[in-house]
Design a protein around this nucleic acid. Sequence first.
DNA 1: ATGATTTTCGTCATTATGACGATATTTTCG
DNA 2: CGAAAATATCGTCATAATGACGAAAATCAT
Lengths: 143, 143
Amino acid sequence: MDDLDAQILRHLGGDARLSLAVLARRLKVARSTVQARLERLESTGVIAGYTLKLGEAARASRLQATVLLTIDLRIQAQIVTRLKAIAGVERIMSTSGRVDLLLQIAAPSPVELDRILDAVGEMAGVRSSESFIHLTTKLDRTV
Amino acid sequence: MDDLDAQILRHLGGDARLSLAVLARRLKVARSTVQARLERLESTGVIAGYTLKLGEAARASRLQATVLLTIDLRIQAQIVTRLKAIAGVERIMSTSGRVDLLLQIAAPSPVELDRILDAVGEMAGVRSSESFIHLTTKLDRTV
DNA sequence: ATGATTTTCGTCATTATGACGATATTTTCG
DNA sequence: CGAAAATATCGTCATAATGACGAAAATCAT
């Protein structure tokens, strides 16, 4: 993970569909160098994959929410497994702090979001849940 | 936004570096059709961009945190502007619920993370802040 | 220093891209 | 309904990018 790797990550973080050839010209190295570097970054698990960022036009039909959960930690693994089985659950993180798990949820409609939030809140082992519905995204420069 | 568009989004969501040609073969339409569709999805703002997902190998050297803020809503715009100026702030969302803003923060070290959290917490107009440091990512199928 | 290992480079055959005119399909409205 | 207009899809060029791989350069260990 030297400077060249970092630059590759930064450029692809900005536009993951950049061609190897263009990237190589920008970084002023041979195309095959970038190709080798990228293969290594992928195979060593530095890069987990490539995805797209939806714009406002698409987010309009997508309600999102963040949920804080405190749970019975003895059955955390079980809870995580059951959360994964819910389609709208997009991210699950364990945290240090007042809560144990942090979820990010997406649903196509308020009704559906409500259904998911209920399902999560009433799951066995979930002691408390608090949810925050996303209104507008003011910034998103997620890597 | 018909079914073909949705399929294009789904495939590129899974792997944003798929070539147009491969994508077209998978969807069994002409490559130029996918090309035209994709150009439209991009120009109409359905797709905001393409980015990469970092794997555990890269996340190891990246501390992340979620922060809940209640603020003086009269100067929300100003606060958002100042938050954007902080390098580690990756996402800012306004929310309905007990808090006003939800931040996602990333830093290369605990010291740096602490510095950012302090800077945010002591910002003028911020009434209260609560932060949750991410320990492990149990699931990430963010679109 | 020198042999081993890793990294970078150049190049070939194959495949993908951008551009665009030609069909086909859908929409509009008399 | 049915013809004109507008969209969408397709096929096909010339150009560019990719994957593969051997050769040259740089780095590392002893």
